[in-house]
Every structure is written in C-alpha cells, then in structure tokens.
C-alpha cells in the first residue's frame, strides 16, 4: 500500500517539467507555511479564550474581558432578516439564483449593536468589526432561489471576548445645558409668545439683555423639572480590543464548544502542515537533480 503510494507520488513528481515543478513546489511550501501560521493563530486564540475569566457586567474592569449572557435587542426592537423575516439581534444572509451555478443576488451582514445581558447589567456589543459566530444557520431552496442565513436570536446565549469600556454619561451640568438649548428652541418656534414674554422694551425684537433673561428663565424651568430626575447613567460597550493581537469574538456557540472547535481546526492544520511539509521534502529528494 505504502509502496504503491510512494510509486504514485514519484510518478507524479517526475512527470512535472521544470517550470511546473517550481510552481508545485511553491504552492506546496505556501500551503505548508500558511497552515503553520493559521495553526498557531488557532492555538493562540483558543488559549486566550480558555485563559480569560468571565466577568460580570456590573463589576467588569475596563480592558480586555470575557462576557457571557443573553442577547437582547436595543430598545426591545429586534431586527428582521430580509428573506425569512425572522426576528433576531444579528443576521448574515445570502440570496442566490440558479443559473449555470448559484449566483449571488443579495448579501448583507448586520452592523447594528445589540445588548448582552448577564443578569447583573447590560453591555452594548458592536458586531461590525468583530468575528461573529452564529449557531443558528439555515439553508433552504425555493424554486430557483437559494437562501442562506445565520442569526443570533433574541434571548439566545452569547459569549463575547473584547474590550470593555464604560461611558459615564452626561454630568448634571451637561444635562441642564442640553435641556436649556432644547427649551429655548421650543420657545423660538412661537415668536409671538417669545416677544410677549421677553420683549421688555417693546421694540419688537429680543436684544442681548432680553435673550439673557430668556436663558435664565429657561435654566430655572429646566432645573426645577430635572431636580429629582437626574441619575448619572453608565453605558457599557464592548468594542475591538486595543491590543490588535487579541481576538474580538461574539458567538452564540459557548466557549467550551468554540475552543474544542479551534482545537480540531488546529489538529487539521497540523496534519496539513506535516503532509505538505513531507511532500515538499519528498519532491526535493525525487528531483535532486534540479538543486
């Protein structure tokens, strides 16, 4: 069996002319080096996933973290996948039409953020630059049309790895400033009323002094309206890691399953590396005359 395989490989290798040999050799070396680079990438990312503890959102520190929770749409308004119309928080779909082969007609990936809720808090996740891995994948054919979609559904378990950031929200002064601006804009809509109230010298115009009085009136109105309402709000976000060598992953496949998958990929790539490396050496031995 092995003898016949070796004979077969020798036959193929000897059948290449010099130019073909160079190309095959280059391709083999490319596969060999490519697989070893990808192999170490999977090992590294798998280890980072295994080695990072899961944080609770309410007490997570700023920096690279791992979160686990349930997916929730922003403002409780789930997205709908074009095609099937299913509700979700993230989607990736592809519509193809049958011609000579399946030809792509439409394709899109959601870039909209969604929340991860772990019971202690919520954190907005930005899927645009992250690697999103969805468990739910469907392919179906209707006539000449083929639909492929992957989604992360509302309330589905999600596992995320990325940079945790907390936006402290507006200070009371900022909230008041915005409130005053909004109120003054509202007053400006009704010029007659504004003149009635603040045109103290009756010249039919609002001068600087009168405008300052209007501002003060707006400020005291906003202050009394927000006196008991102001609560500093924190917003947590998960974004791409500042350290570019760290992965940014959003997955509806649990961590354990994902790391096992990475291990399988790593073993596969190890096999590819060994086989392509061995063949490169084999080719060199068989065509020693060229070196």
């Amino acid at each position: 069996m092995i003898d016949s395989l070796i004979d077969f490989l020798i036959g193929i290798t000897l059948s290449f002319d010099d130019a073909e040999f160079v190309w095959v050799m280059l391709a083999t070396l490319l596969v060999c080096f490519g697989s070893v680079i990808a192999l170490f990438g999977f090992i590294r990312h798998g280890r980072i996933m295994q080695d990072t503890p899961t944080s609770k959102i309410r007490s997570a520190s700023q920096g690279f973290v791992q979160l686990e929770g349930r997916a929730r749409s922003l403002d409780d308004k789930p997205l709908r996948v074009p095609g099937s119309g299913r509700e979700c928080v993230w989607f990736d779909y592809l519509i193809e039409k049958k011609g000579k082969d399946w030809e792509e007609v439409a394709r899109d990936t959601s870039i909209y953020s969604f929340y991860v809720d772990d019971g202690t808090g919520v954190c907005a996740v930005d899927p645009e630059v992250g690697k999103v891995i969805a468990r739910k994948k469907r392919v179906w054919v209707v006539g000449d049309w083929r639909y492929t979609e992957q989604i992360i559904a509302e309330n589905e378990s999600v596992y995320c790895l990325g940079q945790f950031e907390t936006d402290q929200g507006g200070s009371k002064a900022e909230v008041l400033k915005i409130g005053v601006r909004v109120l003054l804009n509202q007053w400006k809509q009704d010029r007659q009323k504004l003149l009635q109230r603040f045109d103290l010298n009756g010249d039919g115009d609002i001068d600087m002094n009168e405008w300052n009085q209007a501002r003060q009136a707006a400020m005291s109105q906003v202050k009394s309206a927000t006196a008991n309402d102001y609560v500093p709000t924190q917003h947590h976000n998960l974004v791409a890691p500042f350290n570019k060598s760290h992965p940014y992953i959003i997955s509806s496949i649990p961590q354990g399953e994902l790391t096992s998958r990475y291990q399988r990929y790593a073993f596969g790539l190890l096999g590819l590396f060994v086989v392509s490396g061995a063949y490169a050496v084999f080719m060199t031995i068989v065509r020693r005359d060229l070196f």
Binding site: D51, P53, T54, S59, S61
Partner: peptide
C-alpha cells in the same frame, strides 16, 4: 464580584 474574577483567574 471582583473576588470571583480574581479567583477564576487564579484557578485558570
């Protein structure tokens, strides 16, 4: 809460 993360890091 942070003790939990610390202990998880130690366990890993």
């Amino acid at each position: 809460d942070r003790r939990e993360i610390f202990n998880e890091s130690v366990r890993l």
